[in-house]
Design a protein around this nucleic acid. Structure first.
Lengths: 150, 150
DNA sequence: TTGTATTTATTGATACATCAATTATATTTG
DNA sequence: CAAATATAATTGATGTATCAATAAATACAA
């Protein structure tokens, strides 16, 4: 009773994991030595040059602790520079290195192709429905405002 | 250009992660000291008493190495027994302990309620669309049969 | 302005993911 | 049957997730 195959959350996880493996494999094939997660960090820093690690974590839905460690890695891989922020000494300024920028360029066509391949045969309408459902789920599981404010 | 918010795979990951946190928090609230992943293992063993670790891994889309370690944990937590298989000495027979069965019973209503809450406002039709799309994605990203068999 | 709270980030501990290499047992094939 | 192959599981190495505790700097309130 209640086969896992019918539980949407298992299928969601399955699809997400499979896509990740697929995407990761395609990066390697293209000779880019980076994990999808590391790429996400680089990409986000590229888009938001003055972002804090905290905001970064939120944007890629990761833990701040994870982000700290990923940044360390990216720095030792010479993809990223980190220097103390000029105006707020609690923060750090994160800057892509040349190598980091190069990786991002290499990745752009790959990630586009990954998505295109993965979504082959999926219609625009279907996509919209999926997005709607995901929004609803997100809304439902996000910490509700405490209603004990009677 | 190409905001992450519009990329379905980010939203998928986001939804999956959020649901996991939600589900995990609800377990803790109910006093069940187990991770969702450990629960998945127990549940699957309950449903397939003679399963191999390899099959188990496939069923919950995890790595065999992860499964090995999770089983070790579950054994030390006294939720699971493991003894060498009678007919095939490469294998192990995995058996739920009383404590393990009790945890599964405690979890049943919780997981049902988790899903119900998370899917509030989502119609049956929408769900079906999502399932279809997930199937398509899975199909697209799964290793294609090598077509160089010319 | 001193004390308190908040924000930014790190660190330690534990759990899980993934890949590659290895061990042990079974199965197949010559 | 012996050799080659396949299967079941473990182990090591590296990367990520999550929680809790901490440190340092900044903001805010009395």
């Amino acid at each position: 009773m209640e086969k896992l195959d019918n539980v949407i959350f298992y299928n969601l996880e399955k699809a997400v994991k499979s896509y990740r493996q697929f995407a990761q494999a395609n990066c390697l094939k293209a000779g880019v030595e980076i994990t999808i997660d590391q790429w996400l960090v680089l990409k986000t820093i590229g888009e938001y040059p003055d972002i804090t690690q905290h905001q970064l974590a939120g944007r890629i839905f990761k833990d701040v602790a994870s982000v700290t460690r990923m940044i360390e890695l990216l720095v030792t891989k010479d993809l990223l520079f980190r220097k103390s922020h000029a105006e707020d000494r609690r923060r750090f300024t994160l800057t892509l290195s040349d190598k980091g920028r190069k990786v991002l360029e290499l990745m752009r066509p790959i990630s586009l192709s990954n998505r295109r391949q993965a979504l082959e045969g999926v219609t625009e309408t279907e996509l919209q429905t999926v997005q709607q459902v995901l929004q609803k789920i997100l809304h439902n599981v996000s910490k509700e405002v405490d209603e004990k404010t009677v």
